[in-house]
Write a protein that binds this DNA or RNA. Structure first.
Length: 423
RNA sequence: GGAGGGAUGGCCGAGCGGUUUAAGGCGGCGGUCUUGAAAACCGUUGAGCGCUUGCGUUCCGCAGGUUCGAAUCCUGCUCCCUCCGCCA
């Protein structure tokens, strides 16, 4: 959520920067409602002052036994006016709130301009793209011929976009989760958290998934619970409503959770395999920082996520998303894309974003710089560290041998009981 | 699922229709004292919003209601705790 005061006082600047996302977002309507709201506040507060004075007066008269019928009648009359004004004030406030919730974050100045993913800017490439002396198979072919991935039976028990991992594949998923968490917690200083996999509407609204993106989510019937699409949702909301000290920051959390996505509107995309599933595992990194530290911490998260791919020796590149491709709540985002041999291209495996104070304002998470200063909003950030399903795709395909077996990356072997290959 | 208890400022906790401007304590900050510190003592210390920056207004879990006036009374809801039942 953007600050209404910022919009009020810098309308032209906000309009210009939001236009880079390709939208107008109804700023004019918002500003006129805001002006109306300010007028209502002034009127109602003036009336409340009169009523408070009258009430104090009545109190004194009652105490001394005087008659206060005139004051009471006057106060009753004012009360009626206040009630009417408060009602329209509340209505106006709710309209403003819902308009604000539908306006995305302002792109950071270092976010490149552009309409869509074609304008994303490559930042770096790492690793050697493997040269196979044979036609590399997809992870689906490899997994099915090795008998370790079973999409047919997954469809039988759940449906399309689900998978069933068996034996070494199931073990590899568990190993990757542990491998990632170990590095992020033991080496990069994140505190591991194990949050709920379902959250309420308020938490979904706080991190920005609701109200606009309900179609992407799974809702539990007859309850206020939603399945989380990413650990970002429960973890970002851990500190909602709290007032921190500067010395508490930065706070870094790492969490493994399954993620559930409806994938509405992606029919026909990545219909087979592990790339796009209704349920997948992910290790997520979340940081809370002071504003001046936000940009630096985004670079940290990116490096922390990249480190997993480096240890696994998987080729990847990093791109900065352009304004038109940026997520709703983000001001700046780096995507990490891993090499997928069967598709002969890089595919997203991590997304690292800086939300400035946009999420913090929604969840009302503030900090106090020192004893004398007023509370201000923290900055929130997060990044995948990494998406486990897609990491499995990358490992299986990049480490395949001509006979259809898969070598286990050296760094992962200790997490798989020393296993060096799946044959 | 049944019965009971509770939710008040950074934290603990009193208040149950009108000097609540929310007592008191802890913690924080400033000062006295001290070579310095501690202790002691004194003072001070919530958030949001509006505008004529000093005033006003709102906020005691959330939402309604009663009243001239609500932290306080009434209704509904949410969450937490205790006991019973069920249960991994």
């Amino acid at each position: 959520m953007l600050d209404i005061k910022l919009i009020r006082e810098n309308a032209a600047m906000i309009r210009a920067r939001l236009s880079k996302r390709g939208g107008d977002y109804g700023l004019d309507a918002l500003l006129s409602l805001d002006a109306q709201r300010l007028r209502l506040i002034q009127k109602t507060e003036q009336l409340k002052q009169s009523r408070n004075e009258l009430s104090a007066n009545i109190g004194e008269k009652k105490k001394s036994g005087e008659n206060s019928d005139i004051e009471q009648a006057k106060s009753r009359e004012i009360g009626g006016e206040i009630k009417a004004l408060d009602e329209s004030l509340k209505k106006t406030g709710e309209e403003i709130e819902s308009m604000l919730l539908s306006i995305p974050n302002i792109p950071h100045e270092s976010t490149p301009d552009g309409e869509d993913e074609a304008a994303n800017r490559e930042v770096l490439k790492w690793g050697e793209i493997p040269k196979f002396s044979f036609a590399p198979k997809s992870h689906v072919e490899l997994g099915e011929s090795l008998g370790i991935l079973d999409f047919g039976r997954a469809a039988k028990i759940a449906g399309a976009r689900f998978s069933l991992a068996k034996g070494p594949a199931a073990e590899m998923e568990r190993a990757l989760i542990n491998f990632m968490l170990e590095i992020q917690t033991k080496e990069h200083g994140y505190t591991e958290v194990a949050p709920p996999f379902m959250v309420n509407t308020s938490a979904m609204t706080g991190s920005g998934q609701l109200p606009k993106f309900a179609d992407d989510l799974f809702k539990i019937e007859n309850s206020d619970y939603w399945l989380i699409p990413t650990a970002e949702v429960p973890v970002t909301n851990i500190l909602s409503g709290e007032l921190l000290d500067l010395s508490d920051l930065p706070i870094s959390y790492a969490a493994y959770t399954p993620c559930f996505r409806a994938e509405a509107g992606s029919y026909g995309k990545d219909t087979i395999g592990l790339i796009r599933q209704h349920q997948f595992s992910k290790v997520e990194l979340v940081k809370f920082t002071a504003p001046e530290d936000g940009e630096r911490q985004l670079e940290r998260i990116l490096k922390d996520a990249e480190e997993i791919l480096r240890r696994l020796n998987l080729p990847y590149r990093v791109v900065t998303l352009c304004s038109g491709d940026l997520g709703f709540s983000a001001a700046k985002t780096y995507d990490i894309e891993v090499w997928v041999p069967s598709q002969n291209k890089y595919r997203e495996i991590s997304s690292c974003s800086w939300f400035t104070d946009y999420q913090a304002r929604r969840i009302n998470l503030r900090f106090r710089r020192d004893k004398k200063s007023r509370p201000q909003f923290v900055h929130t950030l997060n990044g995948s560290g990494l998406a486990v399903g897609r990491t499995m795709v990358a490992v299986m395909e990049n480490y395949q041998l001509e006979n259809g077996s898969i070598e286990i990356p050296k760094a992962l072997r200790p997490y798989m009981g020393g296993l060096d290959a799946i044959v």
